[in-house]
Design a binder for these strands. Sequence first.
DNA 1: GCAATTGCTGACCAGCTGTACAGTACACTG
DNA 2: CAGTGTACTGTACAGCTGGTCAGCAATTGC
Lengths: 209, 209
Amino acid sequence: MRSDKDDLKARARIRNAALELFGAEGVAGVSLRAVATRAGVSHALVLHHFGSKEGLRKECDAYVVSLVRGGPGVEALEDTTGLAAMLEAAGPVRRYLGRAFLDGAPEAAALYDEIVDATERWLEQGVAEGWARPGEDPRARAAIYVTWLLAPLAFGEHLSRVLGLPDPHDLDATLRYSRAGVEILTRGVFADDRVLTAWEAVRKERRAR
Amino acid sequence: MRSDKDDLKARARIRNAALELFGAEGVAGVSLRAVATRAGVSHALVLHHFGSKEGLRKECDAYVVSLVRGGPGVEALEDTTGLAAMLEAAGPVRRYLGRAFLDGAPEAAALYDEIVDATERWLEQGVAEGWARPGEDPRARAAIYVTWLLAPLAFGEHLSRVLGLPDPHDLDATLRYSRAGVEILTRGVFADDRVLTAWEAVRKERRAR
DNA sequence: GCAATTGCTGACCAGCTGTACAGTACACTG
DNA sequence: CAGTGTACTGTACAGCTGGTCAGCAATTGC
């Protein structure tokens, strides 16, 4: 080894560099050489450790997913705090996660399913205990709930720009918009049923056809 | 020209092919040759019409943005129906839009800002007219509202998979989860203020530090 | 000691990339 | 008719891509 500990093992450095670059530019837009340069190693070493670019991508997927899963423990997915912790995850990981969902990485898909399942159970329990309102379609509601909580992963940049906040991955930014989100989830936005009624009308019209 | 109208002018065919492929694989992951092949032309023609790959991308951006803007007219952005129409836009365009937001295309950013502005005014009006509840932070609420409505663009694939629906871009899929969304926006999810209170506690704790 | 393993590199390769360009076919205009 | 412009093609090219490989240096195991 070079120095006493060399900051981080090269393998981890490569993985982190890949995480940042893949998150920022997309997997296809980043060359192995770019990853290697950022990690301060030769591009051959990347192949040596991960076998192929696809191998590197899979490792990144697995790592990010394990971060989310392993962070506060499995049962943490059962409450809001766990999901909130996930949203507070470090910047590059957020970007990467958002992209992984969009690119349809199988690991990400499995994670999404898992979160929806947990959320559905959690909301069901909430209905039983009285702190959550009953919904017409619990499965769809859980899916929407999860999608909405995940949305800042994909749109965080725009969210913070619109709010005039400097750093999209800043905790303050997250706090400000999550407040608005929690407010909606608690009180709703619409004061009466007119939009719901309008939606029913659309459904009815569509069924008639 | 070849036949009477040749289906579509080559230029439009190329743009459509690019839209599909870019949306599916990302701009960096698609070669000009792939676009040309799908459009049934030589790759040199792509350059002839668009000058460069970047030129093609910009044309795609502009086209999609104009679709969204021009569809139901400017004032349509003022109501939910307009946004709903946007979500019903054709499949490839949806994928492309989602990716454009994630990639931070300037055209997409401007569109996002525009929608948030319109939504903020619209909600303000709603509060005045009594059909929308007042919110603590109207700007943040408008931003979150827009982000949530846009979220299915990025997560539509997962949404429909989780709901067991075959086609992510199917109108039926959209209808099912939008119903759940409207329900949340009308009645909320949480029956009491405990999550809101928990959020306040987090803010207080953070301010203390 | 010495052999095996591991981390790591530079040189090399075939293939694909975006782009340039000369040239063809065809429609106009004069 | 020549002349001009436009849609379109095939070929060519420099540069970068992911991946291979032989080999160096340090560590490990015996």
